[in-house]
Amino acid sequence: MAQGQHHIIPIRTLAVVFGVLLFLTLVTAVTARVDLGALNVPLALIIAGSKAILVALVFMALKYDNKVNLLVLVLGVVFAVVFLALTLADTEFRGDIGITEPGTTELSVEPVESE
């Protein structure tokens, strides 16, 4: 029977991945408490991305699966990134040749004192 031949991921592998995921959660929580300046955001995103890749490859078994499924996932992510990138190409550069001024004109922001 066909389905009986599917790759069975060993418990050990799953447990190791789970451990790594917990560890990375700890790392991201700790590093976010430290002020790294401009590095905080990319670091958090890299950690989140690594966790997501681990879940996708092992828990979701893409590593062992039909490659077309991996392709589908990659396409989805690529187009989400296209959406983000091309929208930011507008919002980050509004007013670049003086046609429209960026942002709003009426509301101003004053910082809140942190505790």
Binding site: V82, A89, D90, R94, G95, D96, I97, T100
Partner: peptide, 22 residues
């Protein structure tokens, strides 16, 4: 087809950069 949507927005006030890309 996913990369061209901004051509509906050349006079919307979007950045000139994105108008040119689109």
């Amino acid at each position: 087809g996913f990369l061209v949507w901004g051509h509906h927005m050349f006079v919307s006030g979007q950045s000139a950069l994105s108008s040119i890309i689109f």
